[in-house]
């Protein structure tokens, strides 16, 4: 029976990035992870290792996490060279240890990008994403009494497409997996979410200009269409979004006389 709790415990070795603070250099450190149940989630495995580290008087491994059900986007680990690990459409918190074999050595690293500086161990600063949203990832509608929700019919395919892109959890796996450390998929997903909806039209050009400018300012790399982002995205967001972003951006550049104002370019 493959039922929970009956599988044999596994003996693993972790190879983890340890870095005390942003200023100090980090290094990979090996830890044994003994008697790990295949039914544990990856983060529960780290919990167990941490409990043992604390008991032994060591500093536990810091990592971001919160909801542990794959929706908040807090967790983000490079596991054996893959963002969020070996399982597709899955965040690290939803990855289970049965994806590994007894005796495996598992390499765990933080997201690596200049725009995501390491804070401690596996914790990185992803505030660049918030700043990209601040640049224009919204519809300017103050709280009040807008028209009735059904006054604006939206074709189902458009609503579905918007939802596909709105599903982004802002975890940063796209940046982490991209050979260029590009934030194109994240930025494009928001531009697509709002850009395909009728509510998003008035600010569509401005949004594309401002968000792309901010993305560049945060020192992310450009997009080479490797497709790695799409492969690791836990929500399966398609690089089609990037095409939409490019189109919106080029169109806005060519047609907006006030482009400078929104891109903030010199």
């Amino acid at each position: 029976m493959s039922g929970a709790g009956t599988a044999q415990p596994m003996q693993l070795t972790l190879n983890v990035w340890r870095q005390k603070s942003p200023a100090e250099p980090g290094r990979m450190v090996k830890y044994p992870a003994k008697d790990i149940s295949p039914d544990m989630s990856f983060l529960e495995m780290l919990d167990v290792v941490n409990e043992r580290l604390i008991q032994a008087g060591d500093d536990p491994i810091a990592f971001d996490h919160d909801c542990r059900e794959g929706i908040c986007g807090s967790c983000g680990l490079m596991i054996n060279g893959a963002a969020h690990g070996p399982m597709k459409l899955t965040t690290a918190c939803q990855l289970h240890m049965r994806s590994f074999k007894d005796g495996d050595e598992i390499t765990i690293e933080p997201w690596r990008a200049k725009a995501f500086p390491v804070i401690k161990d596996l914790v990185v600063d992803r505030s660049a994403f918030d700043r990209i949203i601040q640049a224009g990832g919204f519809i300017s509608v103050p709280t009040g009494t807008p028209q009735d929700a059904n006054a604006l019919p939206i074709p189902k395919p458009d609503a579905d497409l918007a939802m596909d892109n709105a599903a982004c959890i802002g975890c940063g796996a796209c940046v982490a997996a991209c050979p260029n450390a590009s934030a194109s998929l994240f930025t494009a997903a928001k531009i697509s979410h709002l850009g395909v909806l009728p509510q998003g039209q008035p600010e569509r050009s401005r949004r594309a200009l401002a968000m792309v400018a901010r993305m560049d300012l945060e020192e992310f790399g450009g997009c080479s269409l490797f497709g790695e982002c799409m492969a690791v995205c836990p929500k399966g967001i398609s690089i089609d979004a990037i095409q939409r972003m490019n189109r919106d951006y080029a169109f806005a550049m060519a047609t907006k006389s006030d482009a400078k104002e929104w891109t903030g370019a010199a």
Partner: peptide, 14 residues
């Protein structure tokens, strides 16, 4: 009303 105006992609009928 507010959420729809903000672009929340609620499920729609055809």
């Amino acid at each position: 009303d507010q959420c729809v105006a903000q672009g929340v992609p609620f499920a729609r009928e055809y």
